[in-house]
Amino acid sequence: MKYINAADVLPKELLNEILKYVDGKLLYIPTSRRKRKWGECSGSREYYKKRNNEIIDQYKNGVTINNIAKNYCLSYDSVRKIVNK
């Protein structure tokens, strides 16, 4: 994150008002944009959703948890959590 000097971007009156509360300290101002959920930007969210649906389908079709775990390089407990949702 790049820091900018508040004196360079804020009106003097607003800067003086802020200084009453946080004189000389760092202040974080969050973005006004909607915060994205984990994995939305990178595509990870969709990837794991698709993978988990494949795992659930395989389990419903009779593939054992041990075989699914081996095929996806997951632990038995990880697969069990996915199929028991």
Rank of each mutant, 00 (worst) to 15 (best):
K2L: 10
N5V: 10
A6M: 12
D8R: 05
V9C: 05
V9I: 14
K12I: 10
L15A: 06
N16C: 03
N16G: 10
N16P: 00
E17Y: 05
L19S: 15
K20P: 00
Y21V: 12
V22H: 08
V22A: 15
D23S: 12
D23Y: 11
Y28C: 03
T31Y: 09
T31G: 06
K35W: 04
R36C: 02
K37F: 07
W38C: 02
G39V: 04
S42I: 12
S44R: 11
E46M: 10
Y48A: 02
Y48W: 14
R51E: 09
E54G: 01
E54K: 03
I55Q: 02
I55A: 06
D57S: 14
D57E: 15
Q58P: 05
Y59K: 09
Y59G: 00
N61H: 12
N61K: 13
I65C: 01
N66H: 09
N66K: 14
A69K: 04
K70S: 12
K70W: 05
N71I: 08
Y72T: 00
C73T: 12
S75F: 04
S75P: 06
Y76K: 15
Y76F: 15
D77A: 07
D77K: 11
S78Q: 14
R80Q: 12
I82C: 07
I82S: 00
V83D: 08
